[in-house]
Amino acid sequence: MRLPAAAWAFVAPALLVVGVFFLLPVVAGLGLSLTDFDIYALAAFSNLRFVGFENYVRMLQTPLFWQALANTLYFVVVGVPLSIGASLGAALLLHSRLARFKPFFRTALFAPVVTTLVAVAVIWRYLFHTRYGVVNYALDQIGVDPVDWLGDPHWAMPTIILLAIWKNFGYNMVIFLASLQAIPEDLYEAARIDGASWFRQTVHITLPLLGPTLLMVGILTTAGYFQLFAEPYVMTQGGPLRSTVSVLYFMYEEGFKWWNFGAASAVAILLFGLIFAVTWLLIHLSKREVNP
């Protein structure tokens, strides 16, 4: 077999799968968002009509969409910095020369990452149970009144954010740890000779050198957090008072509960646009930061 022919034979199966079951549906999703595809069209494609941007216009006039967007932004804006902060803190602790039993601590702190989100959400629901949960019990011990964590619209999203931090911080921790280990030791050596404290070394050496990693971790975490779905599905079903309906939860109900595939596709594409814009913004801002 000649080389190019062989090469195509090697890439063909994977390209076929990715093309037919991902790229093609993505393009079709764009098209679908411009139609009124609903349960009648699901029965017979002849009921399908082209409606232009009507789905998008209608979405932007739907209060629940805006609420879902606001809830998702709340989750992202509060959750991402706290998650990255937790990851960085844990990584700095693990990287410290003073830390003992590093492999054990690293494995234990990473464990939540590989657990199943649904199972963890079930555990979380029990831990934060209003009457019998251990969290309220602990609060009671220090004299704080019980909080209706998942039943109070003000507390439901913070509880989900706590779950997300616990579940995810290990992932970025490992990435930060690898970057920390790549920083040359003599930089710290020189700083120590100059009498710089640990705090100053961290601010002036560690954090600047972590810059590119921080940007990458920030982008990936933000994109991931925008796709909030399983936590509200299991823990709150979007409640209370729709305070935990995320954009994807809204899309799921619109698409697979009411079978409005046209509207659901429009929601998915709006979400994609938002993630893309935020990513672009992060890259742009970080460039300005480096060369003002």
């Binding site: 549906p25 079709a28 994807l248 697979f256 979400l271 893309f276």
Partner: peptide, 20 residues
């Protein structure tokens, strides 16, 4: 092209994929 497509969240494909 493939790497570029990595930024597209899978949910955009979900409804058409279901129909397919």
């Amino acid at each position: 092209t493939l790497i570029g497509a990595l930024v597209i969240p899978g949910q955009v494909a979900m409804m058409p994929l279901f129909l397919l």
